[in-house]
Nucleic acid binder design. Structure first.
Length: 870
RNA sequence: GGGAACUUAGCUCAGGGGUUGAGAGCGUCUGCCUUACAAGCAGAAGGUCGGUGGUUCGAAUCCACCAGUUCCCA
């Protein structure tokens, strides 16, 4: 074995072996299934730290459950990411001087597929670098024919059930991508803006002043509204005012929706460009004047301002208002403005004909699933957020004015009559029956929201819509755990739950584990523009995939956002090297060992580590069961580094030409199993090196038995060894700080000397002792001392007076601390209220503390007395 | 504007829903190339558990308010 662990070649070898043998492919069998569906990354995306976190967690679950005997199936895939991919392709074409519209749909889609084939699959290769044990034979893409058909079938079915409808509504419009967006695709950001107070003239030289942040929409005003109970404006209701910069006179109306405390209490009503105003317009039968083009430039309704952008128009109009004496004042104003999630353009509320999913009936199912506990959110604080969203859910706008995606299976007759069907032929038949000329039908040009395919993911990857009773679906569905980020709880998770219950009557998964967002160590979100996002492949190349996995897990305490620091990869790498070297040590021992009976102390150490290993195993399984990945990794880290390496392997030294304790090898393999979910490459390699198992037999499929919990006496024994180890550490500390020379004379003052018969070996092994005595009496003579629990360890020492003086002061301080603590305990125990009200076991514990500390005080006093005589 | 959290060592965080004397990793400092590992070994220092009140025999832990930070939704 190499002196240092070199992850590069070893990981490469296992990657190709796992691939070659399709190691992680699953087929239904008699075992219980454990299914995960991978949140599909964008097909043309590249791996970022969020993917690393997300997939590492899933891989830990997958590998752990394989060892627990489940038939684990982890389905990977990619998403066509309609708007994101189309935007990239459009930008790419623009560089070539080409325009989407002039190319036409067919050619554009051809270009988009070329792009997808060129860049698609990069992320899949990157995931393999990370060591994810997905079932690559089951890889799916959301535009694969079966998944495409699933989307069409679902659309038609929901339409027939009345859950999908077409309607003219106020939607969020992305003026860059030129498409409608769902509510969830809009991000609100704070912006510094101007609140403009504009005068609307009335007759007699009077005017109403209105505060607005969007003066450019004045041209689309059709009314001014005030609150019906607002005394200031009561007399205005029913009068007319002139829209500034125009000749239009509009009514002053009263509506409850007006907030009298905002601005002047008067609201300009612009039904075409504000959702609230649209509602007011409907209530009052107001006309609608749309002044924007799809690109959010002003159109012919804006008269002289036509052709200007929103921003240009705003400046011009403000200037013109000021010139006309109609601008009372402006003041700085901070408010939130909706931006497109994908293009970052400021979205424009727009009245438009779109397809919607009726959410209320579906939301009801999804709400119940979580309330009843059929689907559990981890951490559970997300349940409140989830409930709030579902209770206030609005209909889902699913049509997008894009070409890359699932084309809406709806056909229109020239008069606008719609026929929804799976195929053009079916639509034509329907049209014929309805008395239309079938040849006049035209298919809807739009595609569906990406999430309209994603919400079917746990169903469609198992071909549920192709064949609902197929064996894969029956075996693998429902899945167990969905691992994802809270930011897509509404986009995706809630909708998958809806789809699962609506179409199959069953939940799509039992647990949703929501992990945080990866930030840098300064708590900033990772982004390309900040340049603070490390390239995972670069990290893997420099530290190894296992180290990166350990690094990301170690930066992720449950639930919260995690601060990623590359130093953690370094820590992971060092840990891998430590493990590697511990196995290397075993090999060296085996080479040099001679046959025979192992040392009795080795036997004692073995008994100890057997218990410690059982305890460690129990802890790790319990933590994984609670989805506490950081704690599980951390526990293993310390268990392996400190207990296994620093205490156990050191206890078994010196190895050369001594009989070797054979059982240590089996214990080391047990540790490999526990570590395997976190560091698959390293552990796979070491497992095969030690066991000689053939390459196609992955450690992943070895059986990890149920850990057995420790009996009280076993726990006591572990604790006793911990005390001995603590004593050893502290004596080493004395040796270090007082520069003690040569072999030590150690005396232990204890009330239970018999307890040490099995433990003395530790002291002899780890300390250079020339003499060890045990007694209930203190050591007489100059000595340094260490107090552990209630045993005093004396280390004989010949030191200058200054050193003793330092020691006296330390002892005095400790004595003062013990005495103050004793006073607290005594006060508590003498308090009749405490004695009557506290639980008996609490009283007993406090009494034990009292006794322990009284003993400590005695020991300290004796020691001080001895020092005083020096 | 509505909602959810968070505040414990220099940094990142455990813990606790009433009772074990303040924990971990990293970082820092000290001494060591001890023949598995310097990607290492052995030690050490470091905190009135955000503030104020309340409930209680007892509060870092429960409650209220305050201050600060973050996130989600409109």
């Amino acid at each position: 074995m190499e002196k240092a662990y070199t992850p590069g070649p070893i990981e490469a070898r296992w990657r190709s072996l796992w691939e070659e043998h399709a190691t992680y492919h699953s087929e239904p069998d008699e075992r219980v299934s454990y299914t995960l569906v991978m949140p599909p990354p964008n097909v043309t995306g590249v791996l970022h730290m969020g993917h690393v976190l997300n997939n590492t967690i899933q891989d830990i679950l997958a590998r752990f459950h394989r060892m627990k005997g489940y038939n684990v199936c982890w389905v990977p895939g990619t998403d066509h990411a309609s708007i994101a991919t189309e935007a990239k392709v459009v930008a790419r074409l623009r560089e070539e001087g080409l325009d989407k519209r002039t190319l036409g749909r067919e050619t554009f889609l051809q270009k988009a597929w070329e792009w997808t084939h060129k860049h698609g699959g990069i992320i899949v290769q990157q995931l393999k670098q990370l060591g994810v044990s997905a079932d690559w034979k089951r890889y799916r893409f959301t535009l694969d024919p079966p998944l495409y058909r699933a989307v069409e079938k679902v659309f038609v079915e929901l339409y027939r059930q009345g859950l999908i409808y077409r309607g003219k509504r106020m939607i969020h419009w992305d003026p860059v991508a030129l498409t409608a967006l769902s509510d969830e695709e809009v991000l609100y950001k704070e912006r510094e803006s101007l609140l403009c107070y504009v005068r609307y003239p009335a007759e007699n030289g009077e005017y109403l002043t209105i505060a607005t942040v969007r003066p450019e929409t004045i041209l689309a005003d059709v009314a001014v509204a005030v609150h019906p109970s607002d005394e200031r404006y009561r007399s205005w209701i029913g009068r007319q005012v002139r829209v500034p910069l125009t000749d239009r006179w509009v009514p002053v109306i009263a509506d409850e929706a007006v907030d009298p405390s905002f601005g002047t209490g008067c609201l300009k009503v612009t039904p075409a460009h504000d959702p609230k105003d649209y509602e007011i317009g409907l209530r009052h039968g107001l006309p609608i004047i749309d002044i924007f083009t799809p690109e959010a430039h002003l159109n012919e309704n804006a008269g002289p301002y036509a052709g200007l952008s929103r921003e240009e128009a705003r400046h011009r109009i403000l200037a013109d208002l000021a010139a006309a004496g109609l601008l009372a004042k402006t003041e700085p104003y901070t408010h939130t403005v909706g931006h497109s999630e994908r293009t970052d353009a400021v979205v424009e509320p727009r009245l438009s004909e779109q397809w919607f999913v009726r959410m209320k009936p579906l939301a009801e199912l999804a709400l119940q699933a979580v309330e009843k506990g059929d689907v559990r959110l981890v951490p559970d604080r997300f349940e409140g957020i989830y409930r709030h969203w579902l209770e206030n859910v609005r209909d889902w706008c699913i049509s997008r004015q894009l070409w890359w995606g699932h084309r809406i299976p709806a056909w229109y007759a020239p008069d606008g009559q719609v026929f929804v069907a799976l195929t053009a032929e079916e639509a034509q038949t329907q049209a014929l029956q309805a008395g239309y000329d079938p040849s006049s039908l035209r298919q809807d040009e739009d595609v569906l929201d990406t999430w309209f395919s994603s919400w079917l993911w746990p169903l469609s990857v198992f071909d549920y819509f192709e064949a609902p009773e197929n064996p894969d679906f029956r075996y693998y569905y429902p899945t167990q755990v969905l691992v994802t980020a809270p930011e897509i709880l509404f986009f995706w998770v809630a909708r998958m739950i809806m789809a699962g219950y609506h179409f199959t009557g069953k939940k799509p998964f039992s647990v949703v584990y929501l992990h945080g967002i990866v930030r840098d160590k300064l708590r900033r979100k990772m982004s390309k523009s900040l340049g603070n996002s490390p390239d995972p492949l670069d990290l893997i190349a420099r530290y190894g995939a296992d180290a990166v996995r350990i690094g990301i897990v170690l930066s992720a305490p449950a639930g919260n956002d995690l601060l990623f620091d590359e130093a953690l990869c370094e820590q992971g790498k060092n840990f891998c090297n430590k493990v590697w070297n511990s196995f290397r040590l075993l090999s060296l021992w085996e080479e040099r060992s001679t046959p025979g009976e192992p040392d009795p102390f080795h036997q004692a150490a073995y008994r100890w580590f057997t218990l410690r290993l059982r305890e460690l195993h129990t802890e790790v399984e319990s933590l994984l069961g609670q989805y506490r990945f950081y704690e599980a990794m951390h526990t293993l880290y310390r268990g392996i580094w400190e207990d296994f390496c620093s205490w156990y392997l050191e206890a078994l030294k010196p190895g050369p030409s001594q009989p070797l304790l054979q059982e240590v090898a089996a214990q080391a393999l047990h540790l490999l199993q526990l570590l395997h979910p976190f560091a698959p490459f390293l552990t796979e390699e070491l497992w095969h090196v030690r066991t000689g198992a053939p390459p196609e037999k992955s450690l992943s499929f070895t059986s990890l038995p149920e850990p057995t919990s420790l009996s009280p006496s076993e726990k006591t024994y572990l604790q006793a060894v911990r005390y001995i180890q603590q004593a050893i550490s502290r004596i080493r500390g004395l040796v270090h700080s007082f520069s003690l020379q040569g072999p030590l004379r150690l005396h232990i003052q204890t009330e239970r000397p018999e307890r040490f018969s099995d433990l003395q070996g530790w002291l002899h092994h780890f300390l250079p002792l020339e003499e060890l005595t045990l007694s209930e009496k203190p050591f007489t003579g100059p000595a340094l001392r260490v107090l552990v629990e209630t045993d005093m360890y004396f280390v004989a020492a010949d030191l200058p007076e200054t050193a003793w003086q330092t020691l006296r002061e330390k002892l005095q301080k400790e004595l003062a601390h013990v005495e103050s603590f004793l006073r607290q305990l005594e006060a508590k125990l003498h308090n009749p209220q405490f004695r009557t009200r506290a639980a008996p076991e609490v009283i007993a514990r406090e009494e034990k503390k009292l006794a322990d500390n009284q003993a400590r005080r005695t020991l300290l006093l004796e020691q001080l007395e001895a020092l005083g005589s020096l």
